[in-house]
Computed example of a mutant assay.
Amino acid sequence: MVVKLVALYQHPDDPEAFDRHYREVHLPLAQRMPGLRRVEIARVTGSPGGSSPYYLMAEMYFDDAASLQAALQSAEGRAAGKDLMGFAGKIVSLHIAEVIQQD
């Protein structure tokens, strides 16, 4: 079953610096994780009720839970995790989800 690691980022204090670090440093590190099949990055523009507490959402797809765990435990996964905690540790939450339907 396809699984994904979902990162939800709250609004950063300095969006420009956050975007630059995310684009130039963090995303290239994360994309090196073994077994990563696809990455989707989305800017959160609101919610049906108005504003949202979230700024950015990243979804990283893997073939299965074992592949995700192996990626997180790899040198590349550890490097991405260390970077994440350094620049966004206070504003990010991580979630693992099983994809139950894809079009």
Results as ranks from 00 to 15, higher is better:
Pro48Arg: 00
Ala75Met: 08
Ala58Tyr: 03
Ser74Tyr: 06
Val92Leu: 13
Gln73Ile: 07
Pro12Arg: 02
Glu16Phe: 11
Leu8Lys: 02
Ala70Cys: 01
Asp83Met: 07
Ser51Tyr: 07
Ala30Met: 00
Val99Met: 04
Gly35Tyr: 03
Asp13Ile: 10
Arg43Pro: 00
His11Thr: 14
Pro28Tyr: 10
Lys90Trp: 08
Glu76Pro: 02
Met60Asp: 03
Gly46Trp: 06
Tyr61Trp: 13
Ala79Arg: 15
Tyr22Asp: 11
Leu94Arg: 06
Val99His: 01
Leu36His: 05
Leu94Lys: 05
Ser93Asn: 12
Lys4His: 11
Glu16Trp: 07
Met85Thr: 10
Met33Asn: 01
Pro53Thr: 04
Arg23Asn: 14
Met85Val: 12
Leu72Ala: 14
Glu59Leu: 08
Tyr61Val: 13
Glu16Tyr: 09
Glu40Asp: 12
Asp19Phe: 09
Val3Pro: 03
Ala71Trp: 03
Leu36Ala: 04
Leu27Asp: 13
Val99Trp: 04
Gly81Arg: 13
Gly35Leu: 00
Ala75Asn: 09
Ala71Met: 07
Val3Thr: 11
Asp63Ile: 03
Ile100Tyr: 12
Ile91Glu: 01
Ile91Ser: 00
Glu24Thr: 00
Met57Gln: 14
Val39Asp: 00
Met57Glu: 13
Pro28Trp: 10
Leu27His: 03
Ala70Gln: 06
Ala88Arg: 01
Val2Cys: 05
Leu84Thr: 08
Val3Glu: 04
Val99Phe: 04
Tyr55Gln: 03
Met85Phe: 10
Arg20Met: 12
Leu84Ile: 02
Lys4Leu: 14
Gly89Phe: 11
Met60Ser: 07
Pro53Phe: 05
Leu36Ser: 05
Lys82Asn: 11
Val39Ser: 11
Met85Gln: 15
Ser52Thr: 01
Gly86Arg: 09
Gly86Glu: 12
Tyr9Gly: 09
Met60His: 06
Leu68Phe: 05
Phe18Tyr: 08
Thr45Arg: 14
Met33Val: 02
Asp83Trp: 11
Ala58His: 06
Val44Trp: 09
Glu16Cys: 08
Pro28Cys: 05
Gly46Met: 01
Met33His: 03
Val25Ile: 15
His26Met: 03
Gly86Ala: 12
Asp14Gln: 02
Glu24Phe: 01
Ala71Val: 06
Ala79Ile: 13
Tyr22Gly: 11
Tyr54Met: 11
Met33Trp: 05
Val44Tyr: 09
Ser74Thr: 06
Met1His: 13
Arg37Ala: 15
Leu27Ala: 15
Phe87Ile: 09
Glu24Ala: 10
Pro48Gln: 00
Val39Ile: 14
Pro28Ile: 07
